[in-house]
Design a protein around this nucleic acid. Sequence first.
RNA 1: GCAGGGGUAGCCAAGCCUGGCCAACGGCGACAGACUCAAGAUCUGUUCCUGUAGAGGUUCAGGAGUUCAAAUCUCCUCCCCUGCACCA
Length: 943
Amino acid sequence: MNTIKSYDYTVVEKKWQDKWFKDRIYEAKKDGGKKFFIHFAYPGVSGYLHVGHMRGFTYCDIIARYKRMSGYNVLFPAGFHASGIPSVAFAKKVERGDRETIALLQKNGCSDEIIKKLSDPREVVHYFSKVYVEDYWKRFGFLIDYSRLMDTISKGYNRFIQWQFHKLYQKNLLIQKPHFAPYCPQCGPVAVDKSETDVSKGGNAEILEFTIIKFKMRDGTILPAATLRPETIFGVTNMWVNPDAIYQKIRIDNEIWICSKECTKKLSYQMENIELLYEEVKGKDLVGKTCFVPLINREIPILSGTFADPNIATGLVMSVPAHAPYDWIALVESKKDIDPIQIIDVKGFGTNPAKEVCEQLNIHSQTETEKLDQATEILYKKEFHTGFLNENCGVYAGIKVSDIKDQVRNDLIEKKLATVMREFSEEVICRCGEKVVIKQIPDQWFIKYSDENLTEMSKQHVSSMNIYPQEYKEEMPKVLEWFDDRAVIRKGSWLGTEFPFKKDWIIEPISDSTLYPAYYIVSKYVNENKIISDEMTNEFFDYIFLGIGKAKNNTWRTIRSDFEYWYPVDINLGGKEHKTVHFPVFLMNHVAVMPERKWPKGIFVHWWVTQKGREKISKSKGGAEPIPQAATTYGVDAMRLYYAHVGSPFVDVEWDPEVVNKYKNRIINIWKFINQLIKTRSTKEDKHLDKWLKSIINRRIQKIIDAFEKYDIRVASNEIFFEIQKDLQWYLKRNGGNKKLLEETITTWIKLMTPIIPHLAEEIWHILGRKNYISNETYPTPNPMDISEEDELGEQLISQTIKDIHEILKVTRIKAKKIHIYTASSWKHKMMQQAIELEKENKLDMKNLMKTAISELEMKDLGKEVSSYANKIIGEIKKMNESDKKQYTIPIDEKKHLEQSVDFLKKEFSTDFEIHKADEKNIYDPMKRAKLAVPLRPAIFIE
RNA sequence: GCAGGGGUAGCCAAGCCUGGCCAACGGCGACAGACUCAAGAUCUGUUCCUGUAGAGGUUCAGGAGUUCAAAUCUCCUCCCCUGCACCA
């Protein structure tokens, strides 16, 4: 029995992959039938992937394989997203000999010669593209159409993107306006994001918009106070300056401002017309002077406040002691006699909310920043959601804070009493060591996603799409509504397509990845050298995608007809990180550029594989198992089954080697089990059992297909790998052994498995003597003729009876000498059916039931027993659902079924059995059990 | 702040849309038995509580409600998570 050794998954998997790929069974063929176009959001190519990434890819291959086997021509292409900074960053690391990077490459078997080449970003892209194809996708047996591989930095693709932007321009969806973006004075534009590719600190920073309110001093000089709560202007009692900070005078347009030195530098990137006056003002020299609150022209003192940080915004803070805990505490510490002015009425607080919350948290000093931050948050939230501006607020009195915030700000700006300054929520440091600032780009280009027409059409289209999970379908219209204009070009060292309307500016990587599935139609011909990039003009794409103009040659016509056949995309599959960026732009660009019948038909979003503790697996943390290593350790089929079955696609799962190992055992177990079944020599037929097996397998097939049609891969795999195996085990346990039937069932079974574990299925297929590929076979469909309700019910009767006997034995702890089983009297069956009939007509009650029952002659004699049974089932039936009721209408000879199985029962309980029917005369029934028997629940007596 | 997701037995995780097939799929773990020299693997059974006859009781974050009937619908409360733009 060392079949375990005979399943060498490494060899088997390699063997079939070689054959599939040599025979190019993956190539999409259009033969006029139904088509299905599926792809995954193509990955960036700037490093090795990990086992988490394989989850989505695997779903895609499973769906594609299922569809192939279900009679569709499937197009499942793949490509590489090469634009942006990542590959440039990687190349830079190699160039400067970053030890970690080099070690990673070496560990993955990269030769020194290749490593040398990888200081070129384009080589990085090519190297990793090859790794993905050979070590990941082919290694997992994916039937991707490898003849269509492409990346986003090829010439042809560039032409394609430029065409797209011409179209957007023509449709007035490209607009220009000022934009503010992170910028390193040394390196130029940088990306601030959690993975911190560009920055060494502050990846979590957000860009905050401070309102800068202009407080005039007596000499006309402006003190610009920065605030996130402009509506509190009516409660200002004083100004805070940091006595130890150095402030500077600057001229902006015709105004003279005083702000911190640090602020000057930042502002110079955000505003035009800033002129340094080279005049410093010490903070402590401002203390004691006064200034005027704009709008209400109240004169207020300037006080010393050490918490006013020159690094944050302007370094000047307006003081609202009634509503800002910091201000309140500073005011207390200053010992000045100033009355706070309450301007917001909020439930649960009195005339000075800031004071009250400080007292609650026991705060006494400006230095207790942690508590003060907490106090600020509590108060702010409360006031924002439930507060109203009071009579001190002039025209704004009586309005809810949450409704008024932006209005106060806009009014102030309109009256030129305020302006806006952008600031990071925390310090951001570039990889070069320089502080990152926010820079204004006055004429940035945007794609106008806010366009009403575009948004509306996209939203409407969503309702006709297949979007999984359902929750995302409901979310999508809201996302589209919320999605704002997106800046699309950038100047700097990164890869991508040159923007056609501004030389040397490159289209950013999200915007060049929206229509790309359409390019898979073209890439095949590019790869086969049937068309060269120079030929791919705007006229070319107009013809291919829009049918405008004339074909220049036959290749054009062929590509056009391919596009007409394959497009639109049926499923675009991607991780949940794409929900709010990639999928919306994917949809909206199609709506903007393509004709309506080419708009996407479906989106499938999957969740992640995380590290233990729910952390996202990250490349930088290196915590993830390399894919080829995992494939060797567990086997590809085991990993595919793991992804398919471990959880719903719509939850995160934790990567746990032990769990994956269980699936590996499962694969070996299935291998052994099937081989054992194949060896069955017996040709014994058992009419009932064989019919039962056929019937139950047919039901499974129906359920599996239903699940697959909804892409419910987990349910499908549960049925295939767990439920069917249980059925077969029951068949064997019941002593079934019809070789012919078993072989048929196995054939069906491995076909069912093929989309999920194609290698093992293919191997067994050939062991069974088949010469073609199971991967090209047709997926099983249920045959209604094979359904036998009676035989299924019979088996259910047996297993229910066994369960009952077990329970009795357990509770009573008797050792059985002999077990008697009594099936219910015929009149009980009859009455049950009558009752169900009456229920259907809504006439079920005691009177009607008894009337119907008594009309049957034999029941007359039974008297009381009849009425008490009738009483009992009336209640029961009312609680039954349709399938419960249906069971009782299936004609079944319980006694016959039990008698057929008596040998099995004897073996199961190692004891003697006798089957009786309750209405037989003179049966052995010392404990008077027989009368307790009811349909489908025979009475039991154990002696 | 904006938009969204979620809290189910020791753990992971179905079910919730379309209320009754639900003591609640499946897996893992645990326990018992089988196979075995043994270990692993595999197979069978048990795994909320009670129970000497197949039963009963109490459960699906907490609270209130709708209903003949609620894990499932409604409302409130508490707690956790995700995305938010020049990052792919």
